[in-house]
């Protein structure tokens, strides 16, 4: 009621209530999806026994390195070398701990696959697990925050689906033609989950509805456009596969980024 006004004459207001994650984190949430999704594709290719070159695992490795590079570059702790503790601790309740193992494992496995060392199928099977972890953990990171009403448990599904959509949509653009059907399905699923997400908020308790209003106020049109892009992209797949893939990827990137950025809002304080 008087929050904004009161902050002028009172002391502090709420100093830690501003957004804590900024664009590099948003970028990470996209890059980790691309890296994880491409790694999953590598695992799929390795397991399916199809034609396999060093290029795709190398690309996956490069994407993982790029993602980790972005994370490291924006980390306040980048010169403190504390990230080593991700691997010296056992924190199974922490999504980020799983994500760290997922990305590190995927990096190692894609490197082995690119070099052609060791059993391709064995590495592929392991990579299936680690890349899935990389795809799953962002949703887990968000959904764990019970106090932030826009980060609902539905993100546990929405994030990996849109993540895979981004990765495979890009792969489709780069010539992996056989992914067309999968991209279409993922785009439809993404749009449907997005709709379900909004419906869930609307049907939820007061805090959820207030959060939905906040989302609508901040970026409602953009979020709707993102879902619409995913929704229409399958219809264009046959005739304009590139346009469809681009639409689906853009919609997924936008929807995820909005949820990460705006979702940082806290539930009602009183």
């Amino acid at each position: 009621m008087t929050g904004a006004a009161a902050s002028i004459t009172t002391f502090y207001g709420a100093p830690n209530s501003a957004a804590f994650w900024h664009w590099p984190t948003l970028l990470h949430f996209v890059l980790v999806a691309v890296a994880g999704g491409v790694a999953l594709l590598v695992a799929y290719r390795a397991l399916s026994g199809a034609r396999f070159t060093w290029r795709l695992p190398a690309l996956a490795l490069a994407l993982i390195v790029l993602d980790l590079g972005v994370l490291w570059g924006e980390s306040l702790a980048r010169w403190r070398l504390t990230h080593v503790y991700l691997f010296l601790s056992f924190q199974p309740a922490s999504a980020i701990w799983w994500g760290a193992w997922g990305l590190a494992g995927s990096a190692a496995l894609t490197a082995l696959l690119a070099l052609g060392w060791g059993p391709r199928r064995g590495w592929g099977a392991l990579l299936l697990v680690t890349s899935s972890l990389a795809l799953l953990y962002p949703g887990l990171v968000l959904a764990a925050n019970a106090a932030r009403p826009l980060w609902t448990p539905l993100l546990l599904v929405f994030m990996p689906v849109t993540g895979l959509l981004i990765a495979w949509g890009l792969a489709l653009l780069l010539g992996q033609r056989d992914l067309g059907v999968a991209v279409g399905a993922l785009a439809l699923a993404g749009a449907a989950l997005g709709g379900l997400y909004l419906a869930g908020l609307a049907a939820g308790p007061g805090g959820a509805r207030a959060a939905l209003e906040h989302l609508w106020h901040e970026a409602g049109v953009w979020f709707a456009l993102a879902l619409a892009a995913m929704l229409v992209s399958p219809a264009l797949l046959r005739r304009y596969p590139a346009v469809a893939a681009l639409l689906a990827v853009a919609g997924a990137v936008l929807a995820r980024s909005l949820l990460v950025e705006i979702g940082q809002v806290m539930g009602p304080p009183f």
Partner: peptide, 13 residues
């Protein structure tokens, strides 16, 4: 041992 990832900041209600 903190890596400043912000997970705890997000989790604190």
């Amino acid at each position: 041992t903190c890596i400043a990832c912000g997970a705890c900041i997000a989790a604190c209600p």
